[in-house]
Amino acid sequence: SHFELRVGTITLHFDNISEELAEELEKLAKNGVHADEIRRWWEEWLK
């Protein structure tokens, strides 16, 4: 499923992401983690 995450002024787009993972990314964003860090985390997870 597709997921969009708003982090400050940036909107990150994720394809084929589980609800659980989407929730984890939302938690990171709410805790003030920068969009670049979240994207890096996601790319690492995909490997």
Rank of each mutant, 00 (worst) to 15 (best):
S1D: 15
S1Y: 05
S1V: 11
H2N: 09
H2P: 02
H2D: 14
H2S: 07
H2W: 10
F3Y: 05
F3W: 13
F3P: 02
F3S: 01
E4G: 00
L5E: 02
L5A: 02
L5C: 03
L5N: 01
R6V: 15
R6L: 15
R6E: 14
V7M: 06
V7R: 00
V7F: 05
G8W: 03
T9H: 12
T9E: 15
T9I: 09
I10P: 00
I10Y: 01
I10S: 05
T11P: 00
T11S: 05
L12W: 01
L12N: 00
H13E: 06
H13W: 09
H13T: 10
F14H: 00
F14S: 01
F14W: 05
D15W: 13
D15E: 10
D15A: 06
D15S: 08
D15Q: 07
D15K: 06
I17P: 03
I17S: 01
I17G: 01
I17T: 03
I17H: 00
I17W: 03
I17N: 01
S18C: 04
S18I: 04
S18P: 09
E19L: 14
E20M: 07
E20N: 08
E20R: 07
E20F: 08
E20D: 12
L21Y: 04
L21E: 09
L21N: 06
L21G: 05
E23A: 14
E23G: 14
E23N: 13
E23C: 03
E24I: 12
E24G: 06
L25G: 00
L25M: 10
L25P: 00
E26G: 13
E26P: 01
E26S: 14
K27E: 12
K27C: 10
K27S: 11
L28N: 02
L28D: 01
L28H: 09
A29E: 03
A29F: 04
A29W: 04
A29C: 04
K30P: 03
N31S: 12
N31C: 08
N31G: 11
N31L: 12
N31R: 14
N31K: 12
G32F: 06
G32P: 04
G32K: 04
G32T: 06
G32Y: 04
V33D: 05
V33W: 13
V33H: 12
V33E: 10
V33G: 08
V33P: 04
H34L: 12
H34T: 15
A35G: 06
A35F: 06
D36G: 08
D36W: 02
D36S: 10
D36Q: 13
E37H: 10
I38E: 01
I38F: 07
I38K: 01
R39E: 12
R39G: 08
R39Q: 12
R39Y: 13
R39M: 15
R40A: 13
R40P: 01
W41F: 14
W42D: 00
W42C: 08
W42M: 11
W42Q: 03
W42G: 05
W42I: 08
E43D: 11
E43G: 05
E44M: 10
E44Q: 10
E44D: 14
E44A: 11
W45V: 10
W45L: 08
W45F: 11
W45P: 00
W45N: 09
L46Q: 13
L46S: 09
K47S: 12
K47P: 05
